[in-house]
Amino acid sequence: MRLNIYRYDPERGDPPRMQAYDVQPEAGDKKLLDLLMRLRVQDDSLSFRRSCREGVCGSDAMNINGRNGLACLTALDGLKEPIVLRPLPGFPVIRDLVVDMTQFFAHYHSIRPWLINDEPLPERERLQTPTERERLDGLYECILCACCSAFCPSYWWNPDKFIGPSGLLQAYRFIADSRDTASAERLDFLDDVYRLYRCRTIMNCTEVCPKGLSPSHAIERIRLALLQRSS
């Protein structure tokens, strides 16, 4: 199969370029990552992140034929050749397909991604009804791969100020949690022209989420929660 891959070597300082590769898939190779692993044997200077190879760690997010996705979940079947691989759009490139996620995780950190509850600790755990637990479905599964934020035009224009779809989905995950008592503070934090309201509901995030989640829906719920609170 033919691939065309974005190469950048910070030590050489040359501008990024595209490099063509030919690699023969072998029996059992089903996903793009399988092919990339073979390619790495051929050219050990090619850099990309990967770990679990089954869509849980969120390391191998990249731009595949113009759309963001995880190499380990992208089937080779049906991929148009040459397969064009580029780093996540809008993210600083450290080397080849490896991008700098510092800002992305800073946004994640800013929404305080942990349970806040100042009520006295119960003897055992904080209980939830099955209905309360269900509210977290479609939210807790996020693996922070950044496919969504790196496909969001609003995030491209204001990556330093807009929290981005991933961070906002995570923010709503805690707002929706019945065990969290800081909803009001969380909403206060989000009511900002940049942090939340750069979203224009383009829905590129939901289009590319490899876990089938809908950050745009979470953002819609945050806006409604803010509206409800102020009326």
Binding site: L190, D191, D192, V193, Y194, R195, L196, Y197, R223, L226, L227, S230
Partner: peptide, 12 residues
Amino acid sequence: MRLFTGQRAWVV
């Protein structure tokens, strides 16, 4: 007062 509002502009 902030120059650009979040929710208020959205509501307008």
